[in-house]
C-alpha cells in the first residue's frame, strides 16, 4: 500500500512535469503569430542567406562590426530593394552575380555543391547497412549454438552474489 501511495505521488510529479512542458510549448507555439511585418522577415532571410565580404566570413545577420565596409552597404541595398518589392531570390541572385558563389552562406544544390548536402546522408545510409549487417552477423552464430551444456551451477556463486550485493 506504501508503494501505491508512492505510485500516485510519482504520477502527479510526472504529470506536473509534463504539464509544465506542455504549457511551455503551448506558449512557444502561440508566440510567432505576433511577428509583425513581412519585410523584416524577408530581410532576415536575405541576410541569413548572404555572407559579409569584409573577411569576417559571417552571415550578414551576424557580422557585428560597426560601419563594416561590406555589411553596411549590402544591408542598406537589401532593405531598399525589399521596400521596392523585389523578391528575396532575385536580390540574392544579383549579389551572386556581383560577388560569385562565395557570397552565399550555404552551398547551392547544383553540380558538385550538391554533394555537400547529400554526402552526410549517404554516409548515414551506408553506416546503417553496415551496422545492421554487423548486428545480424554477430547475432547469428549464437542462435545456432543453442544452449551448450552448462557446467553445474556452483553453490559458491549464490553466496558470492549475495556478498557482492551487500558491498555495492
Amino acid at each position: 500500500m506504501n508503494s501505491h501511495a508512492t505510485d500516485r505521488r510519482a504520477h502527479s510529479a510526472l504529470s506536473g512535469l509534463g504539464g509544465g512542458l506542455l504549457l511551455l510549448c503551448f506558449w512557444a507555439a502561440a508566440a510567432p503569430a505576433a511577428t509583425p511585418g513581412d519585410i523584416s522577415r524577408a530581410y532576415k532571410e536575405t541576410c541569413d542567406r548572404l555572407v559579409c565580404q569584409c573577411g569576417c566570413n559571417e552571415q550578414l545577420s551576424v557580422c557585428a562590426m560597426q560601419n563594416c565596409s561590406s555589411a553596411t552597404p549590402m544591408r542598406a541595398e537589401i532593405r531598399e530593394r525589399l521596400q521596392k518589392g523585389d523578391p528575396v531570390d532575385q536580390i540574392v541572385d544579383s549579389f551572386v552575380a556581383r560577388y560569385g558563389k562565395k557570397v552565399l552562406s550555404a552551398p547551392t544544390t547544383t553540380g558538385f555543391d550538391l554533394s555537400a548536402w547529400i554526402m552526410p546522408f549517404v554516409i548515414l545510409c551506408l553506416g546503417l547497412v553496415v551496422v545492421v549487417w554487423v548486428a545480424v552477423r554477430m547475432a547469428r552464430p549464437a542462435a545456432e549454438a543453442v544452449q551448450p551444456e552448462l557446467p553445474p551451477v556452483d553453490p559458491r556463486v549464490e553466496e558470492e552474489l549475495k556478498e557482492f550485493e551487500k558491498e555495492i
Binding site: 544452449q147 552448462l150 557446467p151 551451477v153 556452483d154 559458491r156 556463486v157 558470492e160 552474489l161
Partner: peptide, 16 residues
C-alpha cells in the same frame, strides 16, 4: 532464466 543460467555458469567456470 536462460540468461541468468548463462551468467551463473560463466561465474562457476571462472570460480573453477
Amino acid at each position: 532464466r536462460r540468461l541468468e543460467a548463462g551468467y551463473k555458469s560463466e561465474a562457476a567456470k571462472l570460480l573453477q
